[in-house]
């Protein structure tokens, strides 16, 4: 799976992110490690506040350096990028690693046209004429499926619909042909049909451009549709990791079971209420010692007061004390659940 000679596209090792708050340092991300190879489509799943976005923003150096402390290592094509001077990091950001923000309503500068903003990015990283950059911007807008791209070039963000804006943002992210696209919940602010179109677009772009994609989402349905590999995050840690096939066929962590159970069934009678996980996720300031999910977990037992064994280096694994038998039993209950709930 991993080529030993060629370094991974992005290799994150023991990432730890903490914030300075009024009550001292608060750790938001703890011991997150993962690697992504060229052309892979990886989904990071978790509830709001689980640290999905913060972990990637900190890798890209987009967090506030005065209040955020990032430890661990992250290497892009073998080159360490954490702690790189801003000037160096800027050459990677936007050119090699592009970011697709969450909410296209607020992610574009309202006072500049779509075209201006795309041209700005192209001309920041490449020495091309204005005309060439404009031509490329219009091609990109066409490629992401904006009707009448030449007109869209001169439009301001507020003149486009949400779906069109998200396409424009994706076109901008693609403008320098990045090797890695980081998409932060790109479909959350969109309605369902547009969501599907944007996901199709991302899949097509990966095929045509060969970019690897990290998709941050809280929507297991989205994950099932597009991802090769999945990381489930909870309270700042990766709690389960595996290929999408493995995770959907045999989820191992009780939290993942909870996420799966909350996907509405496509067939069969509509459940009266979707099952939910009781309680709320902890904020970074009050993550319990030991397994952070234990207080909400129906399967907790004595060892959960300690920290579960670290995830194995590769393959499908969960950050949990339950043994294989217990995991199998929990899964069986999960897959039986929709019928009982109905």
């Amino acid at each position: 799976m991993t080529d030993p000679i060629r370094p991974a596209l992005l290799d994150v090792d023991h990432l730890k992110v903490s914030f300075a708050t009024d009550r001292g340092r608060v750790t938001a991300i703890n011991d997150v490690s993962f690697r992504i190879d060229d052309g892979e489509f990886v989904a990071i799943v978790g509830e709001s506040g689980s640290g999905k976005t913060v972990s990637l923003l900190s890798i890209l150096g987009l967090t506030d350096r005065r209040t955020t402390f990032v430890e661990g290592t992250a290497a892009f094509r073998g080159r360490p990028i954490l702690g790189l001077p801003d000037r160096e990091l800027r050459r990677i950001r936007g050119k090699q690693i592009a970011f697709i923000p969450q909410d296209p309503l607020t992610a574009l500068t309202p006072v500049h046209t779509i075209g201006w903003q795309i041209v700005e990015q192209i001309r920041t990283h490449e020495t091309v004429s204005k005309e060439a950059a404009k031509k490329r911007a219009i091609e990109l807008l066409d490629e992401v499926g904006l009707p009448n791209p030449a007109a869209a070039f001169g439009r301001y963000p507020h003149q486009l619909s949400g779906g069109m804006r998200q396409r424009a943002v994706i076109a901008m992210a693609l403008s320098c042909n990045p090797a890695l696209l980081v998409a932060d919940e790109p479909t959350t602010a969109l309605d369902v049909t547009v969501q599907a179109q944007v996901l199709d677009l991302l899949k097509r772009l990966r095929r045509d451009h060969g970019s690897a994609i990290i998709l941050i989402t809280h929507d297991m349905g989205v994950v099932a549709e597009v991802a090769d590999r999945v990381m489930v995050m909870y309270a700042g840690r990766v709690i389960e990791r595996g290929t999408a096939r493995e995770i959907f066929a045999a989820p191992e962590h009780p939290y993942t079971w909870g996420l799966m159970a909350s996907i509405p069934p496509v067939e069969g009678p509509r459940p009266h209420r979707l099952p939910s996980i009781p309680g709320t996720p902890p904020t970074p300031a009050n993550i319990p010692p030991g397994c952070a999910f234990a207080p909400r977990c129906a399967h907790r037992f004595a060892p959960c007061a300690g920290l579960p064994p670290a995830l194995s280096a590769s393959g499908h694994d969960a950050f949990c004390f339950l043994d294989d038998n217990a995991r199998a039993a929990g899964r069986a209950a999960l897959f039986a659940a929709p019928e009982t709930a109905a």
């Binding site: 890209l60 987009l62 936007g94 909410d103 500049h112 920041t124």
Partner: peptide, 25 residues
């Protein structure tokens, strides 16, 4: 604002982010 984060994610220089994006708005 999100659009400042977008501008920084594009790899723009801090001066450009300030003058063309933050100041204008």
């Amino acid at each position: 604002e999100d659009f400042i984060r977008t501008a920084r994610a594009k790899g723009l220089s801090p001066a450009r982010v300030m003058l063309r994006h933050a100041l204008r708005t």
